[in-house]
Design a protein around this nucleic acid. Structure first.
Length: 209
DNA sequence: ATCCCGAGGG
DNA sequence: CCCTCTGGAT
């Protein structure tokens, strides 16, 4: 069967309504430096940010700088983040990323999407979060919520990749709206229309179909 | 396509 | 018990 996608205007109307529900949405990850922001976002894969926030204070004290993380024993890093899941690969990626930051970037966090994406554990979604949250650079990070919401409302095809979702959203929204719409979609997906939500998606928008 | 993986909610 | 959580590497 053929899937009917929303027009640009229809998609904008849905997104505008989501934004109206969460006009002041912001990222909920807690961080005190761009380095710790990067670490927190790497950790947040397939994990709630509540769990990440729970380990970040101790993590940040133990590993205040890229140098301290790069030289730490892998077991020590694993121990700090064990409760967030996927901890072995995340610990390995975090240490390797810290080593690259020290060796190639003077321990600074690159302000560049392609450079960010060369870091172990950093893909397009993570890079976009760091750019948007850390540097205020317009970007739409496509996570499970953004992807799910975009598909439920047929803003994109059901088999669209995260990259395709990102390009579609960026094409229909003015850059000024990218970051706040992204945040609104996250909170809408987390609190209003979670993965187990059933029935007509528009009923969650309080909007006529 | 498969693996990584603990914690929380239903 | 089963599903999901601001994914990325192989």
């Amino acid at each position: 069967m053929v899937e009917k996608l929303l027009s640009d205007d229809e998609a904008r109307a849905v997104l505008k309504r989501i934004l109206a529900l969460y006009p002041d949405a912001k990222g909920e990850l807690q961080w005190d430096s761009k380095f710790h922001l990067l670490c927190a976002v790497v950790m947040s894969a397939q994990t709630t940010d509540k769990m990440v926030n729970r380990v970040m204070p101790s993590f940040s004290r133990k590993f205040p700088t890229p140098e301290s993380l790069a030289t730490a024993p892998i077991e020590e890093i694993e121990h700090e983040i064990k409760t967030i899941g996927l901890y072995r690969s995340k610990a390995k990626h975090l240490k390797a990323t810290a080593e690259i930051l020290v060796d190639q970037y003077h321990s600074k966090i690159p302000r560049d999407k392609k450079k960010l994406m060369t870091l172990p554990g950093v893909g397009e979604k993570t890079a976009n979060v760091v750019l948007a949250e850390g540097y205020g650079i317009p970007a739409i990070a496509v996570d499970t919520h953004v992807s799910r919401i975009s598909k439920k409302f047929h803003i994109v095809d059901q088999k669209a990749t995260p990259h395709e979702v990102e390009k579609r959203l960026e094409a229909i929204l003015p850059k000024k709206e990218w970051i706040k719409t992204h945040h609104a979609m996250i909170l809408f997906g987390r609190y209003t229309m979670p993965a187990r939500a059933k029935g007509d998606p528009y009923s969650y928008l309080d909007m006529q179909n």
